[in-house]
Every structure is written in structure tokens, then in C-alpha cells.
Computed example of a mutant assay.
Amino acid sequence: MREVVIVEGCRTAVGRRKGMFANYRADELAAIVLEEVAKRSNVDKEMVEDVIMGCVTQVGEQAGNVARTAALIAGFPIDVPGVTIDRQCGSSQQAVHFGAQAIAAGDMDVAIAGGVESMTRAPMFSNVQETKPSKKLTSRYEIVNQGVSAEKIAEKWEFSRHQLDEFSLQSHQRALKAIEQGKFEKEIVPVETGEGTVVQVDEGPRADTTIGALAGLKTVFKENGKITAGNASQMSDGASAVMLMSAKKAAELGLKPKAKIVARTVVGSDPTLMLTGPIQATRKVLKKADLTIADMDRYEVNEAFAPVPMAWLQDIGADPEKLNVNGGAISLGHPLGATGTKLLISLVHELERSGGKYGLLAICEGMGTANATIIERIE
């Protein structure tokens, strides 16, 4: 198997739903990061052998294979193909896995993996709103909304509402500090949104967030429950992409990769709890890499809901000071199809800043699946 490296990566800032990207088409937003990642990589577009993008709600402007249409908008030659995949919240992380697998197997030398989601223009569930689960499925499993799953996780792990809100406040505080220190500037490509306005700062973090404000929010999924809009991820708009390559090809081109992909995995998990998969995926990917959680210098575990990374921390025995150190989806937002590569890009940059060697990325996904990836920074 050939070694697979990450040459470059970039993302847009993340906009709130109905926020700064409300008037921006998803295919055009995706085209921006595709063009930029090729430019930053110093790779001719015709060298790219596939564009693999994640997108969850594939309707409207996000339908019709948005990876392909975005690549055409970005000026890639017509013989560069594109494919759009849906593994729910881990879609673009899975895009990385598919691209890496093709390169490792020798089918390709160069591929772009990424994702896009406009939760403003293609609202969540708008592609399935008329569809009810099969009775053959519901006879086997209790199929519930993800928010109900989050309630079940909070209950099973005995997290209090106050603990969930404390974790959420920390997410905002870490994100605001990261923005103030300019930690995201290198990874974000500026986007013109009209009338001379250029956006390059994540829109989600709220400086006015307090424990009192979070405590005052009503629960959404269960009366007298624990999950609120404040301790759940924000609906968002955004796009992200990474340039993947065989190490041999990167050397031939005289490129200096940022990181190599050490191990990757995907697992199925309880479809009712649904969001606990990162625990199993982490254990499996660590075993594949012959590493331990102590070897990881940073980890990104998507904050779909506060109980998800909290349960992961508890069961894995991980260090909370290494988790989502610059905030997560509760504060920075969660543009579904784009989140995987967004977090991967942030993880690469954080390892560079901190001098860390290994990073772990794990994301929970709808209907009970999860991806996990381990990367190693290249000095």
C-alpha cells in the first residue's frame, strides 16, 4: 500500500444558517475551495484524477452531483470527474477515506476530497421530508431524531444539563480565543459576498454566551430534557477541501506535504443511540495504527451535541485539554457535508502550531455510523 499525504487544505469561514452565505449557491461556494486548494498546492488542475465531495442534503442547487458541477465552475478540465457522497455528518471525512484508498491502491496519484453544505438554501431533511422509515426497519430498531438520541446519551452517561452547558460555553470561549489569536486565518479562504463585502471569519461564536444564558434556553426534543439549541451544533453554510497525493507523486513534483494519513476506519453503531460511534471508531483506528490515545497530541471529535464528545472523553479516557482546543461545532457551526474536511484542515494546522505529531479525527453520523482518521504531521 502506498503512503498517502495531505499536501494542502482550505475552507471557507462557516456562516450561520440564513447568515453571511444566505445568498451564496452551494456549488459556487464549493468551487471556491476547489480552485483555492489547487492554487495553494501548486498543482495543475488537469493533474487531479477525481474530485470527491460530501454533501448530505442533495436537493436543489446541491443536487445533480455538486462535486462535478463545482469542479466545472472552478475551471477544472472536463475530463476531471467528480462524485458526491452522503455519509451524513462524516461525508467529507469519508471523501478523504475514499480518495486515500484509491491512492493507496494505486488507482490514482492525485485527488481532491472535500465537502459543502448550505443549510440555508437546502434545509436539513428537505430531501427526506415526505419519507417515513420502513416498517421492516422500525420493527427491528427504535428510529428516533438525532436530538432524541442525544438525550438518551446524556441520560445513559448521567450528564447533567449544567455539565452540557459548561461544555458548550467552553466551546464558545475556545473558538473566540482562537479567532482573536488568528488561528484560523491561514486555513480560511476569503469569500466575496457582494457589494465589496469579503468574509473570512467564522460567524457562529457568540461573545455574549454565558452559563446563565444557556441555562435559560428551552429544551427542544424532550420536555424536561437536557438538549437545547445552546448545547447542540449550529446549522451552518460552508465548504472545505484537501489535496491528497501519493507521497511518491508529491516528491516527484517537489511538494512538501503537511501530513500523512496513518490509519482510517468506519464503523456501524447502535442506530437508536446513533451518535456513540466515535467511541468504537476511535478504538478501532488506534488498533489499526498500533497507537494509543496517549500518543495523540490533538483530537477533533465533532460536537454534534455536547453529550457526544463528553461520552467519548469518558469512555476513551482521553485528555480534555487535547480535545477541540479551538472550539467545535457548538460554537463554530456544522455545515454537514463540509465538516469532515473542515475539521481535518483545522487539525493539521493545530498540529503545525503546537508541534504535535499525531492527530485524531472522529465524527458521529446519522443512523449509527462513524468515521475515524489518524494523521501524522510531516516536519
Rank of each mutant, 00 (worst) to 15 (best):
S118G: 08
S346C: 11
G54D: 12
G60H: 06
C55I: 07
E61C: 08
I279G: 12
I279Y: 13
W312A: 03
T193E: 10
S168G: 09
G60Y: 00
H97F: 14
G115E: 01
Q101P: 11
F125M: 13
V59T: 10
I6S: 01
S149C: 12
V51K: 00
A154H: 01
D237S: 06
V266F: 05
N145K: 11
K156C: 09
E151T: 03
L347H: 08
R11L: 08
A338F: 03
T373H: 13
I330K: 01
K135M: 15
V48G: 04
Q234C: 14
V285F: 10
G340C: 11
G114F: 07
V51W: 09
G366Q: 00
L344G: 06
F221Y: 05
E49M: 03
V83R: 13
T210V: 09
F184K: 00
V191Q: 12
I143V: 15
E155G: 12
S92L: 14
A232F: 01
Q280L: 14
E166N: 14
R206P: 03
F125H: 07
Y141C: 00
S134C: 06
L343P: 02
A13P: 01
F159I: 10
K183F: 15
L361M: 15
N65V: 13
V110S: 03
A111S: 12
I375Q: 02
E352V: 13
H97M: 14
L217K: 04
I261S: 00
K183V: 11
A13L: 05
S236V: 05
G328V: 14
L255D: 05
D109M: 00
E151N: 03
F125W: 04
R121Y: 03
K258C: 10
S92A: 15
K222A: 11
G212S: 08
F305H: 04
T292E: 08
I378E: 12
A338R: 04
R283N: 01
S346Q: 00
A250C: 08
Q58D: 10
E180T: 00
E187Y: 05
D315W: 02
D237E: 05
H172R: 07
A251R: 15
G328Q: 08
S346H: 05
G327D: 12
T210P: 13
G366P: 04
D44Y: 14
S346V: 06
G317M: 01
R11G: 05
F125D: 02
L29E: 06
H97L: 11
A241T: 01
W312Q: 13
A241W: 15
L214N: 06
D109P: 07
I103C: 11
V116N: 10
T12R: 09
T292M: 08
S331L: 10
I32K: 12
A150W: 05
I52T: 02
R17L: 15
E350S: 01
A122Y: 02
